[in-house]
């Protein structure tokens, strides 16, 4: 089990705030589609900056 950020795409407003704060390049915004890759270490900074509350940290 590892901690990873998970996105609720129905909440995501695809603004890119989470991309700007991720120094692991784990979040990538493609058009309106946010992808989170295996670089994610579950640090949670993206959760804190998301204006919509669309991100959360989960054990996957």
């Amino acid at each position: 089990m590892v901690k990873r950020a998970v996105v609720n795409r129905r909440k995501c407003a695809y603004c890119g705030a989470c991309v700007a704060v991720c120094n692991l390049f784990a979040t990538e915004l493609i058009e309106t589609f946010l992808e989170i890759n295996e670089n994610c270490n579950g640090c949670g900074i993206c959760v804190e900056v998301c204006p919509m509350g669309a991100l959360s940290i989960m054990e996957v």
Binding site: A17, A20, V21, N23, I45
Partner: peptide, 20 residues
């Protein structure tokens, strides 16, 4: 704000949560 060019080239540091 999410500049890939800037961060890959090492010109800027990723923003902290007190800088955004």
């Amino acid at each position: 704000v999410e500049s890939r060019v800037g961060r890959i080239a090492g010109i800027i540091k990723t923003l902290k949560k007190s800088e955004i």
